[in-house]
Design a protein around this nucleic acid. Structure first.
Length: 430
RNA sequence: GGAGAGGUGGCAGAGUGGUCGAAUGUACCUGACUCGAAAUCAGGCGUAGGUAUAUGCCUACCGUGGGUUCGAAUCCCACCCUCUCCGCCA
């Protein structure tokens, strides 16, 4: 959420910056609502003030045993007008709130201006494109031939966009997650957390998935007492539960930065991506991810993003996978993000780079929605900056390992760093 | 699932219809005492919003949402959450 004070003081400036990401801010409507809000709020507060002081007088008069009928008749009139005008004020404030929650974050000044993916900037390529002296197979072919990847059974159990892993492949998947967690906790200073996979609407609102992106989520209806209904939502990323750990909290300054890592499944409805990436494990309703989350002092968020990106890159480097880092342009960054870097890993069967991590700084956008604050050096509560990034998407990393480490006979060499997690196994064969 | 207790400021904890935005303690800040510190004493110290720039005034906020009332932290209703005991259970 953007700071409404900023919209009030520099509406055109905000509109200009949002325009760089293709968002049209209805400045006329906002201005109109603000004018109305101002007038009605002033009137409401005036009436409230009169009611309060009259009521106080009634109390004093009654204490002295004086007659209060005149003043009480007066304050009843005030009360009647108040009732009407308060409804108007609430409606206006609701409409402003809806508008405000629908506004995306403003891109950081360093983000290249562009309309789409095509305008993203490649920052660097690390490692080399592997060369094969045989025709490479994709991960589906490799996995099925190894007897460890089974989409048919998954379809029977659940449907499309699910997978079943077996034997060595299931273990390799687990090894990857363990390796990532250990690296981030032992070498990068993150605290491992285990968190709920079902969260409430307030948490989804806090990180920005709600109210705008409900169709991307799996909702789990939940009957509460006496006709009350509250939904749970399956997390689309660990970002949601982990970032919301500080919702409505005031973190002591000396505890910053907070750095958490979590390995969780992620659930996405993939509405709107029908027909895309239907083959294989690239785009699934359920996948595992190791997520890095930081809550930092506002002065530190840019540096923290570079560090966090480096932490994610370390995993790929240790696995010996070729990748590139892309800086997303204003037209391609996510709704809540101020800056985003994508890491794309090389997939030889597709002869292309595919996103395997997305690292973002949200500045105060999520913190403002969550009321996640710290106590600054002056002793005043101030909004935190939040960041997160995949470190990495486990399913896609498995795909990358299979495709990049395949041999001519369809077996897979286990990367050195994973062997301790594989009982010393060097090669995955049928 | 059953029974009971409770949710108040950074923390602890009073407060059962009017001078309560809220005692008290503690933490924190400032000052005094001191060579300095501790102790002690004095003062200050919630969040958000409006107005607009005045050390100003006003409004809202005591788990959440409704209601009663001229007036609600306080009374009524519903819900959520926490704790204790019993039952069940991985």
């Amino acid at each position: 959420m953007l700071d409404i004070q900023l919209l009030r003081s520099d509406l055109e400036g905000v509109a200009t910056r949002l325009a760089t990401r293709g968002f049209v801010l209805d400045t006329a409507r906002f201005h109109e609502l603000e004018v109305q809000r101002k007038a009605i709020q002033i009137r409401t507060q005036e009436l409230q003030s009169r009611r309060n002081s009259s009521s106080k007088l009634i109390g004093q008069a009654k204490a002295k045993g004086e007659d209060t009928s005149v003043i009480m008749a007066e304050v009843v009139l005030v009360g009647e007008e108040l009732k009407k005008i308060e409804v108007q004020l609430i409606d206006l404030q609701d409409e402003l709130q809806v508008m405000l929650e629908g506004l995306p974050n403003m891109p950081h000044g360093s983000v290249p201006v562009g309309a789409s993916e095509a305008d993203n900037q490649e920052m660097r390529r690390i490692g080399n494109v592997p060369v094969f002296d045989f025709a490479v197979k994709d991960h589906v072919e490799l996995g099925e031939a190894l007897g460890g990847l089974d989409f048919e059974t998954a379809a029977r159990i659940s449907g499309a966009r699910f997978s079943v892993l077996k034997g060595g492949l299931a273990r390799l998947h687990r090894a990857l997650a363990q390796f990532m967690l250990d690296t981030h906790t032992d070498q990068h200073g993150y605290t491992e957390v285990y968190v709920p996979y079902l969260v409430n609407a307030a948490s989804m609102r806090g990180t920005g998935q709600l109210p705008k992106f409900e169709e991307d989520l799996f909702r789990v209806p939940r009957q509460m007492g006496e006709g009350g209904e509250q939904n749970f939502y399956l997390i689309p990323t660990a970002e949601v539960p982990v970032t919301n750990m500080v919702r409505d909290e005031i973190v002591p300054l000396e505890q910053l930065p907070l750095k958490f890592v979590a390995h969780t499944p992620c659930f996405r409805s993939e509405a709107g991506s029908a027909g895309r990436d239907t083959r294989g494990m690239i785009r699934q309703h359920q996948f595992d991810k190791v997520e890095l989350v930081q809550m930092v002092h506002p002065d530190e968020s840019c540096a923290a993003l570079e560090q966090l990106l480096g932490h994610a890159e370390t995993i790929l480097q240790k696995l010996g996978l070729h990748y590139r880092v892309v800086r997303l342009c204003t037209g391609d960054i996510g709704f809540s993000s101020a800056i985003t870097y994508d890491i794309e890993v090389w997939l030889p069967a597709q002869d292309t780079y595919r996103e395997i991590s997305s690292c973002s700084s949200f500045e105060a956008f999520q913190a403002r929605r969550m009321q996640a604050r710290f106590r600054n050096s002056a002793g005043k509560p101030e909004l935190l900056h939040t960041l997160n990034g995949s470190g990495l998407a486990v399913g896609r990393t498995l795909v990358a390992v299979l495709e990049n480490y395949q041999l001519a006979d369809g077996s897979i060499v286990i990367p050195d760093v994973l062997r301790p997690y594989m009982g010393g196994m060097e090669k995955l064969t049928r």
